[in-house]
Amino acid sequence: MIFIDYQNRKPIYEQIVERFQMLIIKGVMEADSKMPSVRSLATELSINPNTIQKAYTILEQQGYIYPVKGRGNFVSGNQALKEQQKTAFFEKLKTLIKEAKELDIPKELCLQKTKEFYEEGEA
Rank of each mutant, 00 (worst) to 15 (best):
E30Y: 07
D32Y: 11
K34Y: 03
I4R: 00
E30V: 13
P36C: 03
L45W: 00
K10D: 12
R19W: 10
K10R: 15
K34F: 01
E14T: 09
Y13N: 04
L23M: 15
R19C: 12
S46R: 12
Q15F: 02
K26W: 06
F3D: 14
Y6S: 10
I2G: 04
D5N: 15
Q21A: 13
Q15N: 07
R39P: 02
P36T: 07
S40V: 11
D5R: 08
V38T: 15
T43V: 08
I25T: 09
D5W: 05
E14I: 09
I25F: 05
P11H: 06
K26L: 10
I2E: 02
L41S: 05
E44Q: 10
V17I: 15
A42R: 00
P11C: 05
V38M: 09
S33K: 11
Y6T: 13
E14V: 12
L45S: 01
Q15W: 04
T43K: 12
F3H: 14
S37H: 10
N48I: 07
N48S: 14
M35V: 02
N48H: 12
A42T: 05
V28L: 05
P11Y: 13
I4A: 01
G27T: 03
A31H: 03
F3Y: 15
P49V: 08
M35R: 07
L41E: 01
M1K: 09
Q7A: 14
I2Y: 01
D32W: 01
E18I: 13
S33V: 13
S40D: 15
D5H: 04
F3G: 06
R39D: 11
I4W: 01
A42F: 00
K34P: 12
R9K: 15
I24G: 01
R9P: 03
Y6C: 06
P11G: 06
S37D: 07
Y6G: 10
V28Y: 13
G27P: 08
Y13R: 03
P49Y: 07
P49E: 08
E30I: 10
M1D: 09
Y13K: 08
I12Q: 03
Q15G: 01
M35C: 06
D32P: 02
R9T: 13
S46M: 02
F20P: 02
N8Q: 10
E14P: 02
F3P: 06
I24A: 10
I24Y: 01
V28H: 11
S46Y: 01
L45I: 04
S37W: 03
I12L: 09
S37P: 02
L41Q: 09
F20T: 03
Q21M: 06
I25V: 13
V17P: 02
A42S: 11
E18M: 11
E30A: 07
I4L: 08
